[in-house]
Design a protein around this nucleic acid. Structure first.
Lengths: 122, 122
DNA sequence: TGTCTATGTTGACGTCTGTCGATACAGGTG
DNA sequence: CACCTGTATCGACAGACGTCAACATAGACA
């Protein structure tokens, strides 16, 4: 089995993208991919929305549960779309409501990126 | 000892800022602080510069060692300043050259933010 | 002192981004 | 079917951002 990736549709490029930040200088392509994810979390409203989903029971939440972040409904929808495009959230419609849930693999990849750098540069 | 923070000048707010993303919804203030750091890493050039510093021997590098990222010198300087303002890098002039180094505590805080969310939402 | 190199700052420019109101779409209910 | 609620899309606008050339500053050295 030369390729372990059996669910290619769910994972964005980041999961297999990048070594820890301190291992070697990132290439331009690697940086392009990884920066998209950090950028997605680089807005306060998106960070609150993401945290609201992640902390909701079951790791998923209806939009109506998390919309109270001080911006209009279209803006909430816009930010959720951005998070989805970055691979951090996935969405599913169930009847009247749309539920968003976190993508653990992508988050773990980002965490590893940082954790490695934090450890080895002390 | 009610307050363990004995080196307040070095640490930005982030270190003591935020619980794991999945613990509870982030407040507006917390999100404001944390988003600044993610945003700092949300640009490909900055990510490459940061990675170049982090992967350089000793966890520090002279600007001249890492300037080859395809943008002009003023732009490099601009991005390094942004990373510094975000608390991810610190700088020190030694003679002719300026050296940048990573701030491990801040990185660790960001990693913890993500790692917790990745683990508990699987 | 003057000059050279390394780095930071300024000002300007085009592009990207966050925000909103208006509107469209989807699904439930009557 | 009509109507209501929840969510997404569209179009527009102001402000933020990345980039550069030009200039300024700091230190080394003669």
């Amino acid at each position: 089995m030369p390729n372990v990736k059996v669910l290619p549709l769910l994972e964005p490029d980041v999961v297999a993208c990048c070594p820890p930040l301190n291992e070697r200088p990132m290439s331009a392509d690697e940086a392009e991919v990884a920066a998209k994810m950090f950028k997605a979390l680089g807005d306060p409203v998106r960070l609150r929305l993401f945290s609201a989903v992640a902390s909701h029971e079951g790791g998923e939440a209806c939009v109506c549960d998390i919309s109270d972040v001080g911006v209009s409904q279209p803006t909430v929808s816009h930010h959720l779309k951005k998070l989805k495009e970055a691979g951090l959230l996935s969405s599913e419609r169930r009847g009247t409501w749309v539920y968003y849930r976190v993508e653990p693999a992508v988050l773990a990849a980002m965490g590893a990126l940082l954790a490695g750098a934090a450890k080895a540069t002390a």
